[in-house]
Amino acid sequence: MPNNATRLPHDYLRHDKKFPHVWCPGCGNGIVLGSLIRAIDNIGLEKDEIVMASGIGCSGRLPVYVDFNTLHTTHGRALTFATGIKLAKPSLKVIAVMGDGDATAIGGNHFIHAARRNLDLTAIIINNQIFGMTGGQYSPTTPYGCKASTALYGNIEHAFSIAELAVTAGASYVARSSVFHAKLLDKIIAQGIQRRGFSVIVAMSNCHVQYGRRNQMGSPVIMMEWLRDHAVRIEKAGDLPAKDLQDKFTIGVLADVDKPDYIEEYQKIRERAKEG
């Protein structure tokens, strides 16, 4: 297993792309990319079948390293491009990778509507609770009271809970894990890709450089420990008193509803239209 785990990504990386990558040492993005590769390999999808789209930010750079049909779009808009691709060629498996600011600040409107529309896309949101690439400004998921480069006196805004937002907006599959819980992450990414309809995978991640440093968690190890200590299995969360869940996040599957996706519904439209 360890052998395979380190060897496997090389089957999917672009060998004509110059490395090293742009991410800081210890960044969680690599773990998410590893999980995604393992999930795709487990399902047994062909590289040609996969489209990987991203927006802007550190997460936006994931696609360039992997040998799929890859698309690095504008800030917050990955899902809009993904929508066009999927509708134009439904045989493709379209995966959108986004950051928290990307998906829920500038792209928040696209995100909730994609969930509502229930088109068969997989959205992977790497939530490191900060705008990392631009220098540590607060994002819609930066916790209340935390510091950021635009909130040196403390963040007075309240954070979105992305997975719960996706459930409410109507996504058919929603799950959350963290880069510490990589095996669970592998599993839910694979499930998300295989489920019909809109799937949302939230990967809680670390940005020790832009977020941790300002909030007494300046190393990847400390942040990993934080992720370990603040994650609660969703199966167990129900038994815990509310005070024990404060400042915690649940991991596991939040929603798994089997319902017709947009393309199945649109096929009915085509038939009705042809009947005249």
Partner: peptide, 26 residues
């Protein structure tokens, strides 16, 4: 839809333009 094409009403014009480019790339 009569010609096996696709019409979609997006959430705004930013999204419309994104979807149009995506479909063309496909």
């Amino acid at each position: 839809p009569r010609q096996d094409g696709t019409f979609i009403q997006m959430e705004d014009e930013i999204a419309s333009m994104g979807a149009v480019v995506g479909a063309s790339l496909a």
